[in-house]
Each structure stands twice: as C-alpha cells, then as structure tokens.
Design a protein around this nucleic acid. Structure first.
Length: 838
DNA sequence: AGCACGCCGACT
DNA sequence: GTCGGCGTGCTC
C-alpha cells in the first residue's frame, strides 16, 4: 500500500497584462480548487494596485525562485472564458514563434475587456489585527475599496488578511447635461452690472451728464466699455461718472445662456464638442471652448448614464434563393475575382449552412470600406439563419465593443464581421474564418506586435478546426497553392499611355531629336487623358484621378546643384505642399517653410518633381476649365456630395479615394503615374500594383469605367493581364512561380530583425553580434541576409540595421529566432512576415 | 509601456 | 551642496 500522495498545490497560472512583457506566473486565488481558467480574465496584483490580465496557460510551477502572488479575482467564470481556449493557445503559440512578449501581442489583438468596471468592497478577515497598517486600514465592516490607498490594501492583501468582494457595475457612458437651474452655482446665475445712480451728481461734466442719462434710460450695462460705446462717449468719461458716484456696480440675475436652454430642451450631449456642434447647427452660437467655460461655471455637468447597445446598420436582406455551394471543401481555400457582391453571393450558401447548424462564422476585413461592404453583403445571412450578426471594430466605442463581445460569448450572435479586433472573438463553435482581401497591407499591424493578421487568423482557424477562407479581388501569391474558386473578372476597359515609347510626333520643334521627354505625351496629364477629361465634362459625366501621393510634389530639387531638402529626423526628402508653402516629412510629420535659397549653392529657384494630388488637381483645372475638381487625400477631404448626387466633376485623390464609394456616373479612372507602385524596393510591389488595378476595375458596383494607366512600364505583366482580360488568378500564379525561383514567400518564411540604437555604430555592432549568434546556432548563408542599414537610414533619430531571416517553414523560422532570445546592446525587434520597404 | 533607481554634469 | 538629464531594469 502506497501512502496517499500529499495534496498537490494548484498549478500556477500564466497571466498576460496589456503591456509589452511576457506572461507572468500567479498562484490561484486563495481557496480556489477548480481547473486553470484558460481564456478568462482575472484581477492580479500589479505594482501595488490591481490590473486586468488574461490567463493564457498553466504556469511552469516548481522552478519558482520567489513566492508567487495570488490572483485576486476571476472576472469571467460563470459565463465562460472571455477568449476561447483554442484561440488563446493559437495566439500565444504565434507570439512564442515570433519571439514576441505575449502581452504585446494580446494587447494588440484583444481590443475588448482590459478595463473592468467593478464594485469593489473589502474588509479585514476575522480575527485579524490591522493596527500595524495605521488608522486608515480596513475593519471587519465591509467598505468601498476606493476609501483606502491601493498600496495599503495590497500590503494587507499580501499578508492574507484581506477579504474582497467584486461585483460588475453596469457599464455607463458619460454625457453632458444641462444642470437644473437650482443646482447652478449662484455666482454663475448672477452677473455684475453697472447701474445709474437715481440722481446725477452735480459735479458731472456735460459729457458725463450725457453718459449718465443714457445709462439711466437704457438700463444696466455689463461693462464700462459697453456703456461708453452705447452712450457714444470715451472710456474716460464713463469712468469719471463712476468715480463721481453717478453709477455703481450691482449684482443682477442673469438670464440663462441660450446654450444652456438648448441643452435642457434637446437633451444631453455626448461631449462638450457635440454640444457645441449641435447648438451651433440649431443657430445657437457655441464654440467648444465656450461650452467648456459654461460647464466650468456650473451650467452643465457630465453624468454617467447606462450604456446602450451599439447602433449598427440594419442587416441587409439576404438573397432569397441562395446559389448552390460550389466552394471547395478543405481546411483552407480561396475565392477571388468577380465583384464584391458576386463573391459574397458565392460565399453565402456555405455561411448560411454553417449558421443554420448553429456554428460560428468570423469575417475579417482589413479596412473600414471592406468591412462596410462585407456587412452589407453578409449580415442578412445571420437573420436568415435565425441568429444575429454583430460588428467588432475600432469604429465602435469601447462600451459598444463590449456589448458585441458579450452577445457573441452568450451565443446570441453567430456571425461576426470585424477588423483585426474581432480575431479573438468568443464565438462558441467557430467553423469558418473568412479573411477578406488577404493580401492587403492594412492587415499588417503598425503597433508593437507587427502581427500580420491573416497569419494569426490561420493559426486561430486551425486551432478550432475551422475552415479558413481567403476571399478578395485578387489572391496574394501566398494563397495561390490552395484549392479555390475564381470568378470571371468584371468587364474592364484599360487604355495604356506608354511614356517610354511615345508615338512618332509629326510636329517637332527646333530641338527635335535632342531628347524625347514625357512632355511630348503631356505630363503629368497626358494629351489622351486630357482629351478624355474634356469628354467627361462635355457629357456631364464623372472622373477620378489617382495620384501616387498627397501634397504638390514628391520633392523640391535645386536646378543648379540637384540638392533636395530632406527631413532633419529621417533620411527622406521633404514633400512640397503648394497651398501651405511648406515642406513636410511624410514619415514623421516634421515641417518647415520652403527655404529662400538652396543651402548648398545659394540658388533661389526650386524645381518640383513627382506630381502629387495638389499638382494634378491644378493641372486638371488648367486642362478642363470649368470642370469641378475635388480632392481626397489624408490632407484634404472635400465634400463629395455633389458627385454622389450625380453632378459632373472630377475627384483627384490618393488610394484613400477607393475606401469611399465610387461616384455614380463614373466614366473615367486615370492612374497618373502607375510606376510609383512598382518603384518600391519590395518584392510584393508588383502584386500590390496588380491588386490596385483589380480594385479600380471593381470599384464601381455595376459600371466598367475606362481606366487610363499612364506608365513607363506599359508591358508590365500585372498591367497586361488587365488589358487582355485575364482572370484574377493569372498574375498571382505567375508571381507565385517567380517567388519560387527567388526563394520568397510562399516558398519561404521571412522575418526581419531590426536592430536600432541612437548611436549608429552601436547598432551596427549589435547587428553583427546577432549575425554571428545566428551562424553560431547553425544558420546557413542563405538563411541570414545582412546586416544592412535600413533603407531609410535614420528614422526619428535612431539608426536601424536590418537582418533578414529566410527559413523554409514556420518551424525553422521559430528555431532561428530562438537564438535571438537573450539581451543585446541595442533595441532588437522581430517582424515576422514583414511587408513593405524590404 | 510606465515607473523607480542610479549615475554623472550645471546650477540656486 | 542639490536638480535633473536619460540609461537600465522590473513588473508575478
């Protein structure tokens, strides 16, 4: 008979907080006997206070060098985990492979639930003497925790002498309301006024007498200057009357300000600025500053009101007779081509079937425009299947997102359409993850983790045993090898203006034969495009011109010495903005006015190079006078309402233009300089260019506007497939084969290691150390490229060096990254599956 | 990320 | 003598 094993202490938990640090171990709360609450949020002691954390795994245990603190409270127990355990495992494993601190990744990917609004009460445990903690320590009576210093509570807690009770508080949102008149401080309701004395003093001058009788007749005035202005005398006269006793200050009831009356009648406002905007719209003048002043004086205050569920656009009606399901049956598959509506229609039967089986479907969109279209195209399916659709995205407020999250978790919503913030949504039985436009760079998170959302989505889907569907206008080269379906391309008419091979020109001037410049075809707007713009004007139609950049020009150049003004913080040229006469860094935002003269040679003239939206818009105004020109870029977003109402005009914009709806009468789309999309040192540049052309072709939901592409590379295959009417797979398939030859994704997995320090030499040495460490760990010459100074040699004052790791698969990449897992003498960041600027 | 600790230069 | 720069390290 073996003696019974002594009771094992419960396993510690690994908990992440939303900070860029690894998960930390905590002991289970005192007396907790259940399993590790994977995916639940917990309150943990943190820096003398409490913080919300997420339980991501069972802790290592045993090897603990210090006594673990106990988690204080489990936030999600009865209603189930906040994040499904399978999702927790997938995301945490991805973070581990990418050598990223778990907290950094979770902070990025979990956008809901890091703040807990709790009713928190405390008391001393029975028999505890808290006298040593001072007079302001908890007693046996329950009391609000807010009454004690957090640090003191933590000390009592650590001693195990604190009993705590938590209750969720209903979520509220703050609104600005008009204070009841009785509550407005008397000081705000009464004003000081100048009032005429009953009798004019005898000593008054003639002008003083005039001023006195004016005041006596017109009633009290708020200020001396108002009195003087009204009486038509100087400021000296009225103060003379005041000093002589002909007038005095008095307190008087003020009428409530009109803005207060407005707020009382219309109802609470969401914010001070909303109050100002609302009142102004109704003709009650109120600036945000004035609103703030009124609130400070006590006319309005901010009160919490219960939060209401998010107002979502109503789901669109689903197709009454869904098409048969022709989609592949595979763990991962793709669907591309056609138009967005056609793709959603093809997707519908599969989504409908899964929803009807009460399983969960998650649809991820890279940007707001795609999200909106997906909602319009798919949300109705939820209603048809007897469930609900919800959104989770940054467009919703925190409280609204929490509402969506709770609804999903309770099984009340089977279809989730959202941004990357929806990736970890607690769908009870996830069956399908749809990643829309999987090649979009917008999926690359710019924040700390630099996660590429489709990568993580694939791991989440796999962990749930759910299907992964990649759906969009054109597949990424990475998707090509998957089984899939391609819809016929939308009708597209593409006209190419070939700047590299201008046709013979019959009328050449005296300089003919010296050199042929793009100017011969018309630059930056070709004669062809100009002619088409005038046609658009004559026929009352609409056009859109896509310029490669905002601002007036790419850069200024000195005509005599070729010097280009650059940014002080970053090694990039400053962009020239005509209207503000400013040079701006599009990297860090630094700006200065245009220098009078070249700092190298003293030349006073500048030459603009590389047309931006501002320049193109000015050019259109010249070439088609009278045609309304609108602009749409990050700097300036004109009101496009007249265009959407069908009026004739042309809109000049950057790619931002495509995130809006196409104008209804769109007949012409011009790409003013297509080469800009290709002249990027990034192996994905041509794929991106192809995707842009496909986006242009499907921008208008029904029409096929003429697309004019001005380029020096008229024979580029990404463009040729469009001209020849090939399908959406043709170019990516060719690209995928080319990537095989070059050893690029999908035939390799890349990671960029960024080594940065304020001192360039330090960064270089550290980069070399890392290079040596990788080779020491068995990396081959083909697997480590670099180190090289970053293409932008200096960014915001730091000097980054880059190493590129190229592994055959995820496992090998994780292995290589493993040898970076120790401290270096510079800041080291890993970017798995980097995009842009390679 | 914050925040404390710690080590060296310019000032009341 | 202190004030304050930001380099380094820690958060269970």
């Amino acid at each position: 008979m073996t003696p019974p094993a002594p009771p094992r202490p419960p396993a510690p938990w690994q908990v992440v907080v939303a900070l860029p640090i690894p998960a930390l171990d905590f002991a289970a709360p005192h007396g907790y006997g259940g399993a590790v609450p994977l995916g639940c949020r917990v309150l943990v002691p943190w820096r003398g206070d409490l913080a919300v954390g997420l339980v991501v795994s069972e802790g290592e245990g045993g090897a603990g060098t210090h006594r673990l603190r106990e988690a204080v409270h489990i936030l999600d127990d009865e209603e189930g985990p906040w994040v499904p355990p399978a999702t927790v495992r997938a995301v945490t494993a991805w973070a581990q492979d990418a050598r990223l601190p778990a907290g950094l990744v979770w902070g990025d990917l979990l956008g809901v639930g890091w703040e807990a609004d709790l009713d928190h009460r405390v008391r001393a445990v029975a028999g505890a003497d808290l006298g040593a903690f001072g007079a302001r320590a908890p007693t046996r009576a329950w009391a609000d925790a807010a009454a004690f210093a957090p640090g003191l509570l933590d000390a009592v807690r650590e001693q195990g002498l604190l009993e705590e009770a938590f209750r969720p508080r209903p979520r509220t949102r703050p609104v600005v309301r008009a204070r009841p008149l009785a509550e407005v401080p008397a000081g705000a309701r009464r004003v000081t006024v100048l009032r005429a004395a009953p009798q004019a003093p005898a000593t008054l001058t003639p002008k003083g007498r005039v001023a006195w009788s004016w005041l006596a007749q017109h009633g009290p005035q708020p200020t001396l200057s108002a009195w003087a202005r009204g009486a038509g005398v100087g400021a000296g006269v009225v103060s003379g009357v005041l000093n002589a006793g002909g007038a005095g200050y008095a307190l008087e009831d003020a009428p409530p300000p009109p803005a207060w009356t407005w707020l009382r009648e219309v109802g609470p406002a969401e914010s001070l600025s909303a109050w100002a905007a609302g009142a102004s719209a109704d003709g009650v003048a109120l600036t945000p500053t004035m609103a703030g002043t009124l609130a400070a004086r006590g006319w309005a205050d901010t009160v919490p009101v219960p939060a209401s569920p998010p107002a979502l656009p109503a789901p669109e009606a689903a197709w009454t007779t869904p098409d048969p399901d022709r989609l592949p049956e595979a763990p991962a598959w793709r669907l591309h081509g056609g138009r967005p509506l056609g793709r959603f229609r093809t997707l519908a039967p599969r989504v409908l079937r899964l929803l009807a089986e009460e399983r969960g479907v998650l649809v991820l969109a890279p940007d707001h425009a795609t999200l909106r279209r997906a909602w319009e195209g798919l949300s109705g399916l939820a209603t048809a299947a007897g469930t609900r659709a919800v959104q989770v995205s940054g467009a919703l407020s925190g409280v609204e997102r929490e509402h969506s999250w709770q609804l999903i978790r309770s099984g009340g919503a089977g279809l989730v359409v959202g941004s990357y913030l929806a990736l970890t949504a607690p769908l009870p039985d996830l069956a399908l993850v749809v990643v829309l436009e999987e090649g979009s760079d917008a999926y690359k998170l710019q924040s700390g983790s630099r996660a590429f959302v489709p990568d993580v989505a694939a791991r989440v889907a796999a962990a749930h045993g759910a299907e992964l569907a990649l759906v969009g206008g054109a597949p990424a080269a990475e998707s090509v090898p998957l089984p899939g379906a391609v819809l016929p391309p939308p009708r597209a008419r593409v006209h190419v203006v070939d700047y590299a091979n201008p046709p013979e020109q019959p009328e050449l001037g005296p300089l003919s034969g010296v050199h042929l410049t793009p100017g011969d075809l018309g630059y930056p707007i070709s004669h062809d495009l100009a002619r088409l713009l005038r046609q658009v004007q004559e026929r009352g139609r609409q056009a859109a011109l896509l310029a490669p950049r905002r601002g007036y020009s790419a850069l200024l150049r000195c005509p005599s010495c070729e010097h280009t003004p650059g940014c002080r913080n970053c090694d990039v040229p400053l962009r020239f903005h005509q209207t503000t006469r400013q040079l701006t860094c599009h990297q860090c935002g630094y700006h200065e006015s245009v220098p009078d003269r070249c700092e190298q040679c003293g030349e006073r003239m500048w030459k603009a190079r590389g047309p931006g939206t501002e320049w193109i818009a000015a050019e259109v105004a010249k070439l088609a006078p009278g045609l309304p020109v609108y602009r749409c870029d990050r700097d300036r977003q004109d009101d496009l309402a007249p265009l959407h109402a069908g009026e004739s005009g042309v809109v000049v914009g950057t790619q931002l233009l495509l995130s809006g709806q196409a104008p209804p009468n769109l007949a012409l789309i011009g790409v003013t300089l297509a080469d800009t999309w290709l002249n990027v040192s990034d192996f994905r540049a041509s794929e991106r260019y192809h995707r842009l052309l496909r986006q242009l072709a499907e921008w208008h939901p029904e029409r096929a506007p003429l697309i004019v592409v001005q380029t020096f590379q008229a024979e580029h295959p990404a463009l040729r497939v469009m001209v020849e009417g090939k399908d959406a797979l043709a170019y990516p398939a060719a690209e995928e084969r080319a990537r095989q030859a070059l050893g690029y994704p999908p035939h390799a997995r890349l990671a960029q290691v960024e080594v940065a320090a304020r001192d360039a030499g330090k960064a270089q040495v550290a980069a070399q150390d890392i290079f040596d460490a990788l080779h020491g760990a068995g990396a081959t010459a083909g697997e480590v490229l670099g180190p090289a100074p970053s293409p932008v040699a200096r960014l915001r004052g730091v000097y980054p060096y880059h190493l590129l790791l190229r592994a055959r698969d995820d496992a090998r990449l994780a292995q290589l990254l493993g040898s970076l897992d120790r401290p270096w003498k510079a800041r080291v960041r890993v970017d798995v599956n980097p995009r842009g600027g390679l």
